[in-house]
């Protein structure tokens, strides 16, 4: 791989990282509005408020960047980067097109898990460094939640790795077959629920429950750093939806996959993102204890059962 190609890939990944979350965010604005009988943004940019998030970004840039006097200033400033950059790495590992992923390493599944795990750390650092009780409470809730839901994600991903016989996401998507849709369905559902929880999105948003904790770990943040946390959330949706689309929904597999493979991946991921948005609109917030019950009494057993089923399937040669 020449250095030109490296730079080109990095630029493309960065562009996707900065634009796809905005697309998801705008979709959420409009879809949530219509599901609630509203119109949503209508004026920014002229046509149905398409530039609303661009305008929001311009606003965030102009805001004052406040660091509380009692905060651990270096960590406080660093936290958005700790939260944001791992998702950039995770995005790079996701296979998009036959033989194409931003970052093609042999054990990209492991790299993906490590990266998203570090991303969760950003929330904890933000809450701890803010020197604010709401932020601390939110961070502790987030810690409990992220630790609980990391396990179902790992187990469901392990199931696919077992089924495909590889740790490389590219190889896994390459070996995907339509009957995986049914075979790996429990694992897919576990991954969907656990990734929504991992992103602290509603209905699993107790760490940022605005009625109780103001904005949880992000309470003290303002301006661009706050915007980075929001970007993290939506980048997380993009990354998780892309991975779900690549591993469980077949990624580029579809008509004309040689030329339109990337489009299939993105379309499937968009459908998953819409589902994640829909869950936010339709369902109420889960209590902290219900959240733990769901993780340990439902998701982990289902994921383990899926792993066993996959093992049986691999031995039987499905």
């Amino acid at each position: 791989m020449t250095w030109v190609e490296v730079v080109l890939r990095a630029v493309v990944i960065l562009a996707a990282f900065l634009s796809l979350p905005l697309l998801v965010g705008q979709t959420e604005h409009k879809l949530m509005a219509h599901m609630q009988g509203r119109l949503g943004p209508m004026y920014a940019g002229g046509f149905h408020g398409w530039a609303q998030l661009v305008a929001d970004g311009a606003k965030f840039v102009q805001k004052e960047d406040i660091v509380p006097a009692a905060a651990d200033k270096r960590l406080f400033r660093l936290a958005p980067a700790i939260a944001l950059i791992p998702y950039l790495v995770a995005l790079a590992t996701v296979p998009i097109h036959p033989g194409v992923a931003g970052l093609d390493v042999p054990a990209s599944a492991l790299l993906f898990l490590v990266a998203t795990g570090v991303g969760a750390l950003g929330t904890l650092v933000a809450g701890w460094a803010s020197a604010n009780k709401y932020a601390l409470l939110g961070a502790l809730r987030a810690a409990a939640q992220l630790i609980s839901y990391e396990l179902p994600i790992v187990l469901s991903l392990a199931s696919v790795c077992l089924a495909g016989g590889s740790l490389s996401l590219l190889t896994l998507t390459d070996r995907w077959q339509p009957h995986w849709l049914l075979w790996q369905l429990p694992g897919a559902l576990v991954f969907l629920v656990a990734s929504v929880a991992e992103l602290t999105r509603p209905p699993f948003d107790t760490p940022v429950a605005d009625a109780e904790l103001v904005m949880g770990p992000w309470t003290e943040y303002s301006g661009l750093r706050f915007a980075f946390f929001l970007l993290t959330e939506y980048a997380g949706i993009v990354v998780m939806a892309l991975l779900l689309s690549a591993l469980w929904l077949g990624g580029w597999h579809g008509p004309f996959s040689d030329t339109l493979g990337w489009l299939w991946t993105v379309l499937k991921a968009f459908a998953v993102a819409v589902l994640i948005i829909w869950m936010r609109v339709a369902w109420p917030r889960v209590r902290a204890d219900q959240l733990q019950r769901l993780a340990w009494l439902v998701l982990v057993p289902v994921a383990l059962a899926q792993l066993a089923l996959t093992g049986v399937g691999v031995v039987m040669g499905w």
Partner: peptide, 13 residues
Amino acid sequence: TAKSALRPTHTAE
């Protein structure tokens, strides 16, 4: 939510 998404909105601009 899907049903109300398909219905016309109540917003008066």
